[in-house]
Simulated assay, not measured.
Amino acid sequence: MEPLEIRITHDFICPWCWIGETKLEEAIAAEGASENVKYVFVPYELNPDMPQEGRDRKAYRTAKFGSWARSQAMDAHVADEGRLHGLSFDYEKVKRTPNTMAAHRLVWFAQHEGRDARALVHAIFRAYFTEGRDIGDRGVLTDIAASVGLDRARVNELFASQDGYAQVRKLEAASALASIHAVPYVKLGSEVVSGAQPVPVFRRALRVAMNGDAEPRIAAS
């Protein structure tokens, strides 16, 4: 039987994407389906107009949410939810909001090379949210890629070229045409889970997608 394709549309500055992907993995493990699924990561830039060098996070978040205090309250909520699923968010270390195009190009490259990109994706999330590294910096991304087994020279070649740029833009355009306007957005076969839903929601969608145990239903955030 062909593995079930799970398409995860996400961005690396979205904490709920990391949380949602972790809940999805918990659901897959609980259903004993780890060997029967194939992950495909689909790029989505929350800030497509972000300068390549990124922006100071405090200034960016204050402008976006009206006050730094509100941003900090939101961060605390995220950290509490992440902790329940074994994820560490250390916002004291996160100084910049990055441009995520290079990170998405890197994941595109890994998948184009036929690799399972899960370890790379989680390493990028962890580098940003836990370690406070600038994942808009290509040197940082190259180090992350090498740490999960990608060839450093090949990654350097990627970033010395324009490879992946047009492909990421094409994938983003396809998401827009499909009316995907928020992430995470997880498509399990014909089932859809929108948002970082509770693990049982992912488990139900997975069962329906794999076995047809219930009527398909979209879980909206």
Results as ranks from 00 to 15, higher is better:
209 A>P: 08
25 E>T: 07
138 R>T: 15
146 A>G: 07
49 D>Q: 12
205 A>D: 07
157 E>N: 09
105 R>G: 04
188 L>S: 10
11 D>I: 12
57 R>Q: 14
13 I>W: 03
170 K>N: 13
180 I>H: 13
221 S>G: 03
125 F>V: 07
55 R>T: 02
126 R>N: 08
2 E>Q: 11
1 M>E: 06
91 Y>F: 15
51 P>G: 10
2 E>S: 15
85 H>D: 01
36 N>F: 14
186 V>P: 00
133 R>F: 06
174 A>K: 12
215 E>F: 13
5 E>A: 09
26 E>L: 14
208 V>F: 00
67 S>T: 12
130 T>E: 15
76 A>N: 01
196 A>W: 05
76 A>H: 02
52 Q>I: 11
176 A>N: 10
96 R>E: 08
189 G>H: 03
143 D>R: 14
219 A>D: 13
122 H>G: 05
69 A>D: 15
23 K>I: 14
116 D>G: 02
89 F>K: 02
180 I>T: 06
66 G>E: 05
82 G>L: 05
191 E>T: 00
71 S>T: 11
200 P>E: 01
147 S>N: 03
139 G>H: 12
19 I>D: 02
54 G>H: 07
14 C>N: 03
178 A>Y: 07
165 Y>W: 02
73 A>Y: 09
53 E>W: 00
107 V>T: 07
31 E>F: 06
66 G>L: 06
61 R>V: 03
